[in-house]
Computed example of a mutant assay.
Amino acid sequence: MRKLLFLSVFFLFSSLSFSQIQGEDEVYLNGDLIDAKFQDGDIEKFYNYVIQNFNVQTVEKPGQILFEFTVNEKGEVKNIKILRDLGTNSALELIRVLRESPKWQPASRGGKPISITLKMPLNFK
Results as ranks from 00 to 15, higher is better:
Lys3Pro: 03
Phe6Ser: 06
Phe10Tyr: 10
Leu12Cys: 11
Leu12Asn: 07
Ser14Phe: 08
Ser14Thr: 15
Ser15Gln: 08
Leu16Val: 14
Ser17Met: 14
Ser17Thr: 15
Phe18Asn: 11
Ile21Leu: 15
Gln22Arg: 10
Glu26Arg: 10
Val27Cys: 02
Leu29Cys: 02
Asn30Asp: 12
Leu33Gly: 02
Asp35Ile: 05
Asp35Leu: 11
Ala36Cys: 06
Asp40Gln: 09
Gly41Gln: 05
Asp42Tyr: 08
Asp42Asn: 11
Asn48Phe: 07
Tyr49Phe: 13
Val50Pro: 06
Ile51Tyr: 11
Asn53Tyr: 07
Phe54Arg: 03
Gln57Tyr: 08
Glu60Tyr: 01
Lys61Trp: 01
Lys61Glu: 14
Gly63Val: 05
Gly63His: 06
Gln64Pro: 01
Ile65Ser: 04
Leu66Ser: 07
Phe67Trp: 04
Phe67Asp: 01
Phe69Thr: 03
Glu76Cys: 00
Glu76Asp: 15
Glu76Phe: 06
Glu76Lys: 13
Val77Gly: 09
Val77Cys: 08
Asn79Val: 06
Lys81Trp: 10
Leu83Gly: 08
Arg84Trp: 12
Asp85Arg: 10
Thr88His: 14
Ala91Val: 12
Glu93Val: 13
Arg96Lys: 15
Arg96Met: 10
Arg96Phe: 13
Val97Met: 10
Ser101Gln: 04
Pro102Cys: 05
Ala107Phe: 01
Gly110Ile: 01
Gly111Asp: 00
Lys112Ile: 06
Ile116Ala: 03
Thr117Trp: 00
Pro121Val: 03
Pro121Cys: 00
Leu122Arg: 00
Asn123Gln: 02
